[in-house]
């Protein structure tokens, strides 16, 4: 087996008031598409941003994040900048606000390359046009001169994706890339990522709360809850035979067309407040299978599941 492109071990992210990521560990192999699902506040975005060290100043990081064997948490600011956008790039949630409104789209895409050494204007403009064409934007030479407000939301997200892959990164982190888009446009973006992965072998870490998106794209799925990984396994296994009560509850709350589920089951209760310490398994107050030791000791992540009980689901 080859070296993982990304290897996260026991990652902790804390703010002065709360710890939002606690002991997250997983690997991403070259060319692999890994989905991370979880509800808002589960720590999935913070985990993703930690990889590029794009956290607010007040955040404290602990543990280890290795990119191609190199420790990201020990890198100098210059090394991190050299990595950002070149080796590891990121697509964010809201295409409407991700482009600078006063700069041309083409110039912003070109900037991703000039920041990493490409200065030749002719090469840049050709590369920008071919990138825009590759994400399905017609008349790319002319569209490169457009400003963000002249693009639709779907076009912007495609252009952002083009910008993220401009330097042929080894890893693309997509943080809710389709959340703000129409369903039809969502599909285009997912197809784009699939193509990208197939043609250039870019590994993708896809952060989402949408299980359908994960199901269509990812071979591996990581489920996060309250700053922890609670389940990690091949997507089809996790979706058809979940082993953690939280994953199971999550799937019960998703509407399905292929079977009559009757009423959707909402997970009762609220996720724990990260500012309030909670003993034991973080899901125990909402878990139907809760046992005495679940309230006392936190279960370890073993064999891809973080659960003491492991009920037959």
């Amino acid at each position: 087996m080859s070296e993982p492109v990304l290897s996260i071990r026991d990652l902790h992210v804390s703010f002065p008031t709360a710890t939002v990521v606690q002991g997250v560990s997983f690997d991403v192999m070259p060319g692999e598409i890994v989905g991370v699902v979880g509800e808002s506040g589960s720590g999935k975005s913070m985990t993703a941003r930690s990889v590029l060290r794009l956290l607010p100043k007040s955040a404290r990081l602990g543990g280890s994040i290795r990119f191609r064997g190199q420790e990201v948490l020990d890198m100098s600011p210059a090394d991190i900048r050299a990595m950002r956008g070149a080796l590891v790039s990121m697509v964010f949630q809201d295409p409407m606000t991700s482009f600078n409104p006063v700069l041309r789209i083409g110039d912003q895409i070109a900037e991703a390359m000039t920041l990493h050494g490409q200065k030749d204007r002719k090469t840049l403009s050709d590369r920008v046009a071919s990138l825009l064409a590759s994400v399905g934007i017609g008349n790319p030479k002319a569209r490169a001169r457009a400003y963000p407000h002249e693009f639709s939301g779907g076009m912007r997200q495609r252009a952002l994706t083009a910008m993220a892959v401009a330097n042929g990164p080894a890893l693309l982190i997509a943080d809710e890339p389709t959340t703000a888009l129409d369903v039809t446009v969502q599909d285009q973006i997912l197809q784009l990522m699939r193509d990208l992965n197939a043609t250039s072998g870019t590994a993708i870490l896809l952060i989402t709360h949408n299980i359908a998106v994960v199901a269509s794209l990812c071979r591996r799925l990581i489920v996060m809850y309250a700053g922890r990984v609670v389940e990690d396994g091949p997507t089809d296994e996790v979706l058809t035979a979940p082993r953690h009560p939280y994953t199971w509850s999550l799937l019960q709350s998703v509407p399905r067309l292929d079977r009559a589920t009757g009423r959707l089951v909402a997970i009762k209760g609220q996720p724990p407040d990260p500012a309030e310490p909670l003993a034991g398994c973080k899901f125990h107050p909402r878990c139907p299978w809760v046992e005495e030791r679940c309230t006392r000791d936190e279960p370890p992540l073993e064999d891809g599941v973080r659960c003491w009980v492991r009920p037959a689901l």
């Binding site: 956008g85 070149a86 809201d94 991700s98 900037e111």
Partner: peptide, 16 residues
């Protein structure tokens, strides 16, 4: 704004 975060993710320096 988000575009500042995006620029940072591209590898732009603080001054840029």
């Amino acid at each position: 704004q988000d575009y500042v975060l995006v620029a940072e993710a591209k590898g732009a320096s603080r001054n840029r």
